[in-house]
């Protein structure tokens, strides 16, 4: 059984191939890491999956449903959550309101013009925030949160849409080592208990090798390797283009 299946994905910008013939699948409860050098096409891949970029060729299926070329909001409504490399939250709202709005959007209750938001989906939002240890901050403005908390809020907002697949673009970038471990442990926990599939890009090899079930390596737009941590570490091509000797990144 698969949640996401990608077949023959291609995209070029001004004649330059950014992604060439990429195919893979993700199973429920699986954590799949997408790694590769800067400019290898990871972001392009990600943006095609969530609909920000329309692929030149290839198909993207979510379960049985073809979501190729759908705009981001429709991909989101089909059950794909996303966190961004540079966090994107609603700065003029409190932490709780951010999550309440995500619930309302998911349940298509945006067009209510009169009933105040304050009382709607409040309990659901608090339950979710509690799960992510964010409840004590529920009344603070999202715009003044510390970076690590912002990342967790973004995760909460993504989860409020009850996704089947979660796309995380460099989820731990800019976090201290301890926070990285905690955040990825949380993600792992979600995947195991709810069957949520998680696809993430990452440059911290401690995180990648420590949490991913399976790893895909992208170089110059093409997949050059796929496998578990041991297989990827032992792969000569991956060492040459990406991992290096591993002395500076914990990739040893």
């Amino acid at each position: 059984m698969t949640i996401l299946s990608v077949a023959g994905l291609r995209k070029s910008f001004g004649g330059v191939q950014a992604v060439t013939d990429v195919s893979f699948t993700v199973a429920p409860g699986e954590m799949l890491a997408l790694i590769g050098p800067n400019g290898a096409g990871k972001s392009t891949c990600f943006n095609m999956l969530n609909g920000q970029i329309r692929p030149d060729a290839g198909t993207i299926h979510l379960g049985p449903l073809d979501i190729t070329g759908l705009p981001p909001r429709r991909v989101a409504r089909q059950g794909v959550g996303r966190t961004f490399q540079i966090t994107a939250t609603f700065a003029s709202m409190t932490v709780r309101e951010n999550v309440q709005l995500a619930f309302l959007a998911h349940h298509r209750r945006i067009w209510h013009l009169l009933r105040p938001l304050a009382a709607q989906y409040r309990a659901e939002a608090d339950t979710l925030l509690d799960r992510l240890d964010m409840l004590p901050q529920a009344d603070r403005a999202a715009g003044i949160l510390a970076y690590g908390d912002l990342k967790r809020l973004e995760l909460a907002v993504a989860l409020a849409g009850q996704p089947r697949l979660l796309l995380m673009d460099e989820p731990t970038a800019g976090m201290a080592p301890a926070e990285r471990v905690a955040l990825m442990r949380l993600a792992r926990d979600l995947a195991t208990t709810t069957g949520l599939a998680i696809l993430f890009t990452e440059h911290d090899m401690d995180v990648v090798f420590g949490t991913a079930d399976r790893i895909l390596v992208l170089n110059r737009g093409a997949l050059i390797a796929a496998g578990d941590a041991a297989a990827i570490r032992a792969n000569h091509a991956v060492r040459a283009v990406y991992l290096g000797s591993g002395t500076t990144t914990g990739g040893h």
Binding site: G36, G174, M205, Y242, L243, S245, T247, T248
Partner: peptide, 15 residues
């Protein structure tokens, strides 16, 4: 944070 967001091989260059 000169190594932030960079591939491990590039980080080695940076060192």
């Amino acid at each position: 944070e000169p190594s932030e967001g960079l591939a491990p091989v590039i980080v080695e260059h940076m060192v």
